[in-house]
Design a protein around this nucleic acid. Structure first.
Lengths: 244, 244
DNA sequence: AATTGACATAAAGATTTTGTTAAGAACTTC
DNA sequence: GAAGTTCTTAACAAAATCTTTATGTCAATT
């Protein structure tokens, strides 16, 4: 079973929140909801959604604050939903870093389309071109299929847990680049995590057990001691492994 | 044809001053001269030279004061002229922000070459071809990718430890310029470190073993005896290696 | 030719960082 | 609510790196 994208819906009116949630579920997304700003903070930091659908009109705070908060530490896509037709609101939200803006009332198809676009952009942002275009990362026998959210070794499907997939996926998007422990932690566990690398180490050990022939001598994911992890580059792969 | 660069020569001995002035004129530079510190201040502030050639031995003040004075407000290139025996002066001058030093007696070709290099650097700082903008440094087969935090030789990834990478990275950012041992130490080990060059030597030996074909005859990182290390410049790489 | 000073190299021990394992908590799914 | 996953934490083992010490090399100087 493939892993779904997790969408956080921040919306105070229950009827609307439920409506959106249903639409998204039907379209193969996981959804979580928050009906206040305070609740939103909790969900963002503890559940690390893949995308946020945000209604600006919240009971306890200005929704723009949430955009600011998220943009301090992450590129997590945010789609703003608002009844406000004022051009100024729209501009402000986008300038603070929102990815898109939908005016109520909106059609379900429009919402889905925009969510998919935002997710695609988010993936393209960090990734090398080929991955962005094809949605597929390859290096030797390793294949990451971002559309299906699947990983293959030698054509065989490898089962990874959610966290494991997110780590591999993130590294694959930035193949060749060293991602610091802190960056990975913040990206997947939220900004509140303290520098607890232990959990990354355990995950990496499990990942390597699943994707590397010899986990002690990795071919795909390298450790840069004192810094972070790095996924091998497609182009680099042949050379890396000839030389051994 | 382009407008000539204006060089200020600060030198108390008339014969030398005249000699340099003649050389520079022949090589298509405009020159102005100052034979004391006080005069130098006036010329710098009122004539806005493009480069300064500075003899440290002045009658009325320490030439180092002039470097300090200029560096308070400008990146104006400064080339220091000093006698061979005064190695400490060279180091001090570089640390105060001089761009290069040249040891008496010097050949005219050497002087001209260094002036041209310094002027080129000054221009590169303002244009967008510098490492700071591209995130990539290249010299021959050596590539430093600052975004990926990786170093390649001949396209192949080279594994450097954290300190090794920091050293190479620092030298690459200031390619062509001599970085004193003390400067490197302070930059990487913090300002509290005492002048313990040994640790730098060990690191440099390890770096060279990894990036140079023949560590005893480096192509990329040169030792400036008594002063510091210098990374070869991208543009000069071919020449540097033809000349051997 | 010996001396000196500066740098390069090698090797060893100390220290830091990472990998591995296991056990219990928390969460899912049936 | 029971069984099976997955997540998190802790303890320990293993590996990599850092630093120091010792020794070798080279060039300039006497």
């Amino acid at each position: 079973m493939s892993i779904k994208d997790k969408i956080l819906i921040i919306e105070d009116e229950k009827s609307i929140s439920h409506f959106i949630s249903t639409i998204l579920s039907v379209n193969n997304f996981d959804t979580i909801t928050a009906k206040s700003g305070a609740e939103a903070y909790t969900m963002i930091t503890s559940h690390c959604p893949d995308l946020i659908v945000l209604d600006l009109g919240l009971p306890d705070m200005d929704g723009l604050k949430i955009i600011e908060f998220v943009r301090e530490w992450s590129q997590l896509p945010i789609i703003v939903v608002s009844a406000r037709t004022l051009e100024r609101d729209k501009v402000e939200a986008l300038e603070l870093g929102a990815d898109d803006y939908i005016t109520k009332p909106f059609g379900t198809n429009e919402l889905i389309a925009r969510i998919k676009t935002a997710l695609r952009h988010a993936r393209a942002r960090n990734s090398n071109e080929s991955v962005a275009n094809t949605g597929i990362f390859k290096a030797g026998d390793l294949v990451i299929d971002y559309n299906k959210r699947q990983i293959y070794i030698n054509g065989e499907n490898v089962h990874l847990t959610q966290n494991e997939y997110k780590i591999v996926s993130l590294l694959g998007k930035c193949a060749g680049k060293v991602l610091t422990y802190d960056y990975i932690l913040k990206e997947l566990w939220g900004p509140a995590t303290k520098g607890n690398n232990q959990i990354l180490r355990v995950n990496m050990a499990n990942i390597r057990r699943k994707i590397e022939k010899n986990p002690a001598e990795p071919k795909y994911i390298f450790t840069e001691v004192g810094v972070g992890y790095r996924m091998v580059e497609s182009s680099e792969f042949e050379q890396e492994n000839e030389s051994k």
